[in-house]
C-alpha cells in the first residue's frame, strides 16, 4: 500500500491544551480534507465502495447459503457447509475488500461522520430485497427507512457544503 505523508496538525495535538485543540479541530480537519487524495484515493469514493462491497456480499451470501443449504446435516448450524458454494467465497473476498477500504476511509474522515453514513447499507439491503428479490416491505419498515434517510441527510449535509467550498 502506498504511503502518503503530509503535515497533519491534529495528529500532533496530544500535547495541546484542550481549548486550543478544540479551536484547531476545524482547521486540522479542513487541512486534511484539502490534502486528501483525489481520484480512486478519494475517501468518499472509498466509503461508497466499502458500502457497495458489503451490499453485494450480503446478496451473494444469501444466494450462496441457500444454494448449498443442507439443514439435515449435524454440522449445518455452524454455517461451515456454506463454504461449499463459490458465491460464499466471492462474498468473503468482497468483505475483505470492504474492510480495507473502510480502514482507508478511517484515515481521512472523522468516524462520527463515516460510521453513520456507512449504515446506509441497512436500508439498501431491504430496498434491494424489495427490488430484486420481490420481498415485501411493511409500512413500519418504510417508516424506518424514511428515518434513516433523514438521519443520513442531516449527517451528510454539512459535508456536501464543505466540499463545495473547497
Amino acid at each position: 500500500m502506498k504511503v502518503i505523508k503530509h503535515a497533519d496538525a491534529s495528529a500532533q495535538g496530544a500535547g495541546y491544551s484542550e481549548s486550543i485543540r478544540l479551536r484547531e479541530d476545524d482547521g486540522a480537519l479542513k487541512k486534511r480534507m484539502q490534502n486528501r487524495p483525489t481520484g480512486f484515493g478519494n475517501p468518499w469514493l472509498q466509503l461508497a465502495l466499502s458500502v457497495a462491497c458489503v451490499l453485494v456480499s450480503e446478496f451473494l451470501l444469501k444466494r450462496g447459503a441457500t444454494e448449498v443449504a443442507d439443514t439435515g446435516s449435524a454440522w449445518s448450524w455452524t454455517g461451515l457447509n456454506g463454504l461449499a458454494s463459490p458465491l460464499v467465497w466471492w462474498a468473503i473476498l468482497l468483505i475483505i475488500a470492504s474492510f480495507v477500504s473502510w480502514l482507508y476511509v478511517l484515515r481521512y474522515i472523522p468516524i462520527t461522520i463515516a460510521f453513520p453514513l456507512s449504515r446506509v447499507v441497512d436500508i439498501l439491503v431491504p430496498l434491494g430485497c424489495w427490488i430484486f428479490l420481490g420481498e415485501l416491505i411493511s409500512p413500519l419498515r418504510w417508516c424506518g427507512i424514511a428515518l434513516v434517510v433523514i438521519g443520513l441527510a442531516l449527517v451528510a449535509k454539512p459535508i456536501a457544503q464543505f466540499e463545495e467550498r473547497l
Binding site: D25, G144, L147, V149, I150, G151
Partner: peptide, 22 residues
Amino acid sequence: KEKLNMRLAVGALLISAGIVLV
C-alpha cells in the same frame, strides 16, 4: 475528541431509530 454538534447527534439518533424500526 472528535467534534460533535447537534446536527450529527440528531442524525445518528435518527439513523439508529430507523435501523431499529427496519
